Amino acid sequence: MGEILLNTPKREQLLKDGPPMPTRCQILGRGAYGTVFKAIYRDRSVAVKIIRAQAASTLHNESHLLNLEHRNIVRLLKLESAAEFGLVIMECPRGQSLQRIVDALALPLIHRVLITLDVVAALKYCHSRNVLHLDVKPTNVLVALGTKSSGVGNSSKVKRSYICKLCDFGSSIEMGEFCARQEAAIANGTLRYMSPEALRSDNLSEASDIYSLGITMWQLQTRRLPYHMLDCNETIAYQVVKHELRPDSYHQLKILALDNPCEIGPTDSDWDFNDVIYRKAHGPICRNLSLDPSYTAGRDLKKKRRRNRLALHFDSPAPEASACLENAYSKLYKSCWVSAPESRFSSLQLKHELELILCRSAAP
């Protein structure tokens, strides 16, 4: 209902005229290079990203997906381009982005590990096909709910009803390919997950994706936007490269925030994890209906119901993780964001360490 029917005439119209006037039920998401809509293609539900032709490099990057087929990667079904616009038609499993799930729930350690293992599997496969994703972050991980897992190794011993799929290859490159996207990434805020070598426009490698995954793992644990106390992307980029600023550098972040009062974001005491946590990243709120008690109560009830339904997929079969296991998880993501790329864990090493934590956390 409300989905775009991607028959040949409609695709030709979209390629010529661009995105239609959207309705609330049509839009799946908006990015720096295009808008993603719900659609029907060959009698199946899909997602279609409509991109302006000026972003030709994005279409080229998305084409890397044509040669990738993996259970932890969103499948590309068709890519079309014309003089004005391009279309990227992808599978659309039922679920939500990892960003929204982190907004709503505090995930138990065992699920944070399972999610990370899925992303590691996707990256390992991409790297084996000489593709770097270069935009690993929670908004680019789709959690397909209601999907039975058929995990490999220790992850197969834990029952779950979801699978994670890496998506949005608009920043991807082939290994050894020149990448000139850093300036655009800085302007759009993705730099909060970017490795120092990417920020310096140095040669990129598999380690650049591992760095971004390490930042994402930190976010899964803390449920905060990386460097949430700072608004200025240029300041963050400079500090990451020159002074090894990382999301857990709390003392360093407080000093920077005090030196730049206009950059101070919400403090720990102000942060409401059950609200839209990353409201700064999504822009100002246009309407304020908080003075209407009936509206507020109804909205809170709907949010609570959605959160309760979502939580059913992330119940922990094991007791609450010990401080020792949480520390092991923290140590692991810190090993992913060291400055020297050659000193970071490989995807194989990371998989091994994650499975050790999983085995210990699932033990009775």
Rank of each mutant, 00 (worst) to 15 (best):
R307D: 07
R307T: 15
R307H: 07
R307Q: 10
R307P: 04
N308C: 10
N308T: 14
N308I: 15
R309C: 11
R309H: 10
L310N: 08
L310W: 15
L310R: 10
L310A: 04
L310V: 15
L310C: 06
L310M: 12
A311H: 04
A311Y: 06
A311G: 00
A311I: 04
A311F: 00
L312K: 14
L312Q: 13
H313Q: 09
H313L: 14
H313K: 05
H313Y: 15
H313S: 14
F314H: 00
F314C: 05
F314M: 11
D315V: 13
D315Y: 06
D315C: 15
S316L: 02
S316T: 03
S316G: 03
P317L: 09
P317A: 11
A318M: 10
P319N: 15
P319C: 07
P319R: 07
E320A: 15
E320K: 15
A321H: 08
A321R: 14
S322H: 11
A323C: 11
A323K: 10
C324Q: 11
C324S: 15
C324M: 09
L325N: 10
E326S: 05
E326P: 00
E326I: 06
E326R: 15
N327A: 11
N327T: 04
A328R: 12
A328Q: 13
A328H: 08
A328G: 04
A328P: 01
A328K: 13
Y329A: 08
Y329P: 03
Y329T: 01
S330N: 04
K331A: 09
K331R: 11
L332E: 04
L332V: 05
Y333C: 05
Y333A: 12
Y333K: 02
Y333Q: 04
Y333T: 03
Y333S: 02
K334H: 14
K334L: 12
K334C: 15
K334M: 14
K334G: 08
S335I: 02
S335V: 08
S335P: 05
S335T: 13
C336L: 08
C336Y: 09
C336G: 13
W337S: 10
W337T: 04
W337G: 13
W337L: 03
V338D: 04
V338C: 10
V338M: 02
S339C: 07
S339L: 09
S339G: 07
S339E: 12
A340H: 13
A340F: 14
A340D: 09
A340I: 12
P341Y: 06
P341C: 02
E342M: 01
E342S: 05
E342I: 05
S343G: 08
S343V: 07
S343I: 02
S343Y: 02
S343W: 00
S343C: 07
S343D: 09
R344P: 11
R344L: 00
R344H: 02
F345H: 01
F345L: 14
F345I: 04
F345M: 06
S346C: 06
S346A: 01
S346W: 00
S347N: 07
S347W: 00
S347T: 13
L348K: 05
L348R: 01
L348E: 08
L348N: 00
L348S: 13
